[in-house]
Amino acid sequence: MRKSIMPPARQFQRARSRRTFNRLFQPLHEGHLHEVIELPPTPDEHHWWTCVDLEPDGQRLYLLPGIRFANRLGFVQTEHAWGGDADLHPPYVY
C-alpha cells in the first residue's frame, strides 16, 4: 500500500538516520543510485530522493526530497511518497 509521508512535526537540527529513511519511505532498490538516464520520462518526484554530498570533506552522503540537479550523485526511488513541502523534510543520511 502506497502512502505519503508528511514532514515531521518538529524541525530537526541534524540529518535523520538511514534506518529511519528506510523504515518510513521503503527504498525500492536498496543501495542503488539511479542515474539521470534511468529516470522514467515523467517521474513522480514525490517518490524520488536526490543523493547529494553536503560535506565535501566529510564521509557522509545525504538524501533530499525530490529530483534536484545541483550537486547530485544519483537518485533513490521509494515505495512511499514524501508529502507536503520538500523544504520541510529533513535530510537523511545515505
Rank of each mutant, 00 (worst) to 15 (best):
T42Q: 13
G58C: 06
P56N: 05
R60V: 00
E45S: 08
T42H: 11
I37K: 14
E30G: 04
V36F: 05
V52C: 11
D44Y: 03
D57E: 14
R60T: 00
P43C: 05
L33I: 00
W49D: 05
E55P: 08
T42P: 00
V36Q: 08
W49G: 05
Q59M: 01
T50Q: 13
G31L: 07
P41K: 12
V52R: 14
E30D: 11
C51H: 06
T42Y: 09
D53L: 07
L39Q: 06
H32A: 03
D53Q: 14
E45R: 05
W49V: 08
P41A: 14
P43D: 04
P56G: 06
P56S: 07
P40Q: 07
E30M: 07
E35V: 00
P43R: 00
T50H: 11
L33H: 02
W48D: 01
P56Q: 04
E30N: 08
H46V: 00
H46D: 11
H29D: 14
I37E: 15
D57Y: 09
W49C: 07
D53V: 02
G58D: 09
D57V: 01
P43A: 07
E30W: 00
Q59W: 00
H32V: 14
I37C: 12
R60A: 04
P56A: 04
L39H: 04
P56T: 03
H29T: 10
R60W: 01
H47P: 07
W48N: 02
V52I: 15
L33R: 05
T50F: 08
W48Y: 15
D57F: 10
D53F: 00
H29N: 13
E35P: 01
D57S: 11
C51M: 13
V52E: 14
C51G: 01
H46P: 04
D44T: 03
D44W: 02
E38K: 03
H32W: 04
